[in-house]
Design a protein around this nucleic acid. Structure first.
Length: 245
DNA sequence: CTAGCCTGTCATTAA
DNA sequence: ACTTAATGACAGGCT
């Protein structure tokens, strides 16, 4: 949808109410904030409802060198928001701050005290809406930043955890190989020192060493010849008649 | 001059 | 039904 954003001030529903502030009033603004004239033009182009600054035919002291003077919103004028100006131009009897911050009941109470025109009521409603939304937007953005920061920390934490786990994995891997190697040496040592009744060594192709439940070591004949000699490969114990050392 | 950030505003939606 | 908070989307101003 072609929505007018930014400086667009046209309230949605209520009919377009073009309000023109007095020239002198505008002039005051123009002196304090030369740029106002610029936004005035812009407002006109965008068909603003509360357009407040008549782009004075005179071109309103459009700063020749806007560069330096363009420090709009500085000085005392800085504190005046566009709605403050609109409120002035429409001679609203209530300050923008009150319009925005008073609780509904008090707000209605205040409003009912005056005989306001439809245009004024419309502006008041919009000022309240904009004022509250402005704060909401600020909170929303702050919240969003906080969430981003929080997520970034979470990413960092998880990354650290990942690194730690990897280090642990590497350590455990080394440890496993070390123990595996140690076991292999021990296995060979034991196996080589075994002798059958005739005093001959056992063939590692035909026998393997296994540990029983009670911790004792058994010499077990391999099921099929040509089977792996790897000590780590599991072999089911076959006979009880084997040498036991 | 362009890019990116900031802020205000509007439209919507949900509470 | 009305008000308001939250949020996406835009646009203008600034750096």
């Amino acid at each position: 949808m072609a929505r007018m954003g930014g400086s667009d001030d046209s309230p949605p529903a209520i009919g377009q109410i073009q309000v023109r502030e007095s020239f002198s009033f505008f002039n005051t603004f123009a002196k304090l904030v030369p740029e106002v004239s610029g936004s005035a033009v812009e407002h006109v182009q965008h068909n603003h409802t509360y357009h407040m600054s008549p782009e004075g035919p005179s071109g309103l002291s459009r700063p020749t060198s806007r560069d330096k003077q363009k420090n709009r919103r500085n000085e005392n004028e800085r504190s005046l928001t566009r709605d403050d100006k609109r409120a002035r131009s429409m001679s609203l009897p209530i300050t923008c701050e009150d319009i925005i911050n008073l609780p509904m009941d008090e707000f209605n109470e205040r409003i009912s005290k005056y005989d306001l025109t439809e245009a004024q009521l419309s502006l008041i409603r919009d000022i309240r809406r904009r004022g509250k939304n402005k704060v909401a937007a600020q909170n929303c953005r702050k919240r969003k930043l906080d969430q981003i920061i929080h997520l970034a920390e979470e990413v960092k934490t998880i990354q650290t955890r990942k690194n730690d786990l990897y280090k642990e994995y590497e350590y455990l891997n080394l440890e496993r190989n070390r123990i595996k190697n140690k076991f292999s040496l021990l296995y060979r040592h034991i196996f080589q020192s075994l002798r059958d009744p005739e005093g001959n060594p056992y063939s590692p192709h035909e026998y393997s060493l296994q540990q029983s439940a009670d911790g004792s070591i058994l010499l077990v004949p391999r099921s099929s010849p040509g089977h792996s000699v790897d000590p780590s490969s599991s072999n089911k114990p076959r006979g009880k008649d084997d040498a036991k050392q």
